[in-house]
Design a protein around this nucleic acid. Structure first.
Lengths: 215, 215, 215, 215
DNA sequence: AATGAATGAGGGTTCATTCAT
DNA sequence: CATGAATGAACCCTCATTCAT
């Protein structure tokens, strides 16, 4: 909208510039955004912050993502995809027994890559906004739902007879992971990845004492 | 120019709201803010939203809270205090056995008052921002730390010999509760208060089968 | 849209301010806008220009008009209404004979108030944009259509027998006026209000020699 | 770092457009600009619009015209030149009597080529801006002044004794044409080329009943 | 000669805060 | 105490222009 478009003053780029593959620029901007969200929070992260962090010019986000909103959605999707990819790789690994899979999943959930403070900050920043933003919610949910479904299946394979019981355990596992991530993010003095792993292992061990040993 | 420097005509003060007890105004504004955060999210809640919801004038927040930031802190504190008060009442109730206390706590955590969507929305909105805001973090943490400490003590009373083990269970309980609240907020179709209660009870039953029965 | 609303920095008004009746402020802003359009053109007129001209703060336009676009529409409507009001007053004046009315209309069309350079600049600025903006077009047209209808009726009263002929004369009168206004605006050295009046009178005199005398 | 400073692999120059005669490119861009102005208005026409319409690359305008401003001036000049060329051809045609010339001019003014909606849109777009842009004004004026001068001369040849009277008629003719073009552009439902021609002819017939017959 | 990714000044809009009433 | 018009910094977005390729 807005009438006045005919610019009569000139706006001239002063410095050198470089061209890059679009996909590369997008990732560069997404990573800069993650850094900013971790540092300043979602609502305080501005386009200027992001582009300065990426050492690029102000206009570049709109060039590659059309709008800030779309950038943010891509950021969330980027993290969600990374999580789902890692998780799926384990689930599909046919060399592992169910208990080994579950163990691998626990280790994955609290690996340095996944339980990284910046990424957790992003997760919860979006979760905090998710109740009023359907798009965010959808992406956040998808990850959780897949997780729960996989764990439930594993529970059955681990010998859980009742479907209802498997449901409770799997739902609990996902919720527990969310809560532990929150603790890692918010009280790093009290909670670290190792402890979170132990708590999760302890959880599984209590339900499947034959397959897991409490730490 | 304008003549009447001394206006003797009493300006009709239209509908001037009656002065109210400051404490009452503050609570009125806090409740309006909770409503707004639940409806629009933390970052989209404006002073105008809050005051319109409270049916008060725009300037009144700064009159009673000095700034938006301070209002938000008070909102968070209000919810945290309510939670801690309810929890403490149970902990201090000397008529209850440890297992009864734990059960009461679980019921409390998923009561309509505490696991209320609007309040959960507020919790997670602040948690989402907490990583970049020390003040928010402090308030959010305090609640969690007290909770964990209480549960840990109860675990010992329920027969848990190892301190380490009690720590794991208690930490897990708090994290589980956080994760379940998140689910109630974000996927109400998948998770409700009753199911959350069952998951928590199932958790406790697995560690203390003599005191709790899995649902 | 756009997430980040939670301002954490303060933006404080520094100077004195005064309150005014909304209608008064609106007119103040409309007049400032007319001045700016005449001076810089429609597309180069910015909110900052308008508010600086009105000696008010930047945010005030959005306070009173919601958006720049709406301000512009109101500006156009303001001028159109003024024109129609003056025209209607003459048309409805029952003390005037048809020829007297027509003469009064001609005098009105090139009066200082109506053929004012700033207002003409606004008219043509909007007309220039009208072909791509339905809202502008509608307002501009309405004025022209009423004008033509009135003149046509007067032509009949002046003795024009043929409806078709009255149509041609009236349509011509309106077009002539538009063209003369354009000349006054664009070539003030060649065309002034007095000459424009003479051209219009000459036009009418050629069709109704019994009622008008060529200048 | 990057190894291949001397890239011997011939970079495939994808679809590189063939170089074209500069004059041809310029006209291509001017025509695309006219199309855009007619479609979106002057102030909303961007370099991207123009180059996309011309199916050329973004940078090409600055290559051929240095700046947007200069492109626009060339667009205006292009249309003005076309008009003047057509007009001059008639004026210089020695096979025509004065009355025949005047008729030919009227027919020309409302020919499909001249009274084309897109071109009229461009005229008025520039006229709308002309009051604040001397360059535009000059070009627009030149056309009008030549027109008026020619018509005035014809009036004398048609028997108009008084210089003053010829002046009034000629000035009126030009203004009438401008106004009629505006009507064709802005109210196509009410005004078309045929009607405009009739109005103009009716105008001339009223002054020179011996030479023209009212339609 | 031609391309289009990159730049950044400039624009409209929002909204926490102030203060005359 | 209470009100809400006014303020202006800061935000997101647009787009003419540049220049490495």
């Amino acid at each position: 909208m807005s009438l006045p478009k005919t610019r009569h003053s000139a706006a001239a780029p002063k410095t050198r510039r470089r061209a890059a593959a679009p996909e590369q620029r997008r990732e560069q901007l997404i990573k800069a955004t993650i850094k900013c969200i971790a540092r300043k929070g979602l609502s305080s992260t501005t386009m200027a912050d992001v582009t300065k962090t990426a050492k690029l010019s102000l206009g570049i986000v709109n060039l590659h993502f059309q709008s800030k909103e779309k950038l943010l959605v891509e950021v969330l999707r980027y993290i969600a995809d990374e999580y789902k990819a890692g998780w799926d790789a384990i689930i599909r690994d046919e060399t592992l027994e169910p208990a080994e899979k579950m163990l691998a999943l626990i280790n994955f959930d609290y690996s340095a890559e996944i339980a990284h403070p910046a990424k957790l900050a992003v997760w919860f920043a979006f979760w905090g906004e998710s109740s009023s933003r359907p798009t965010y919610r959808k992406i956040c949910n998808d990850a959780d739902l897949q997780t729960t479904a996989s764990v439930k299946k594993l529970c059955r394979e681990l010998g859980c007879r009742s479907n209802r019981r498997a449901e409770l355990i799997a739902t609990g596992y996902t919720a527990l992971a969310d809560g532990l991530w929150l603790d890692i993010l918010v009280t790093p003095e009290e909670m670290d990845r190792a402890l979170a792993r132990d708590v999760s292992l302890n959880y599984m061990a209590s339900f499947f004492p034959d397959h897991f040993k409490a730490p």
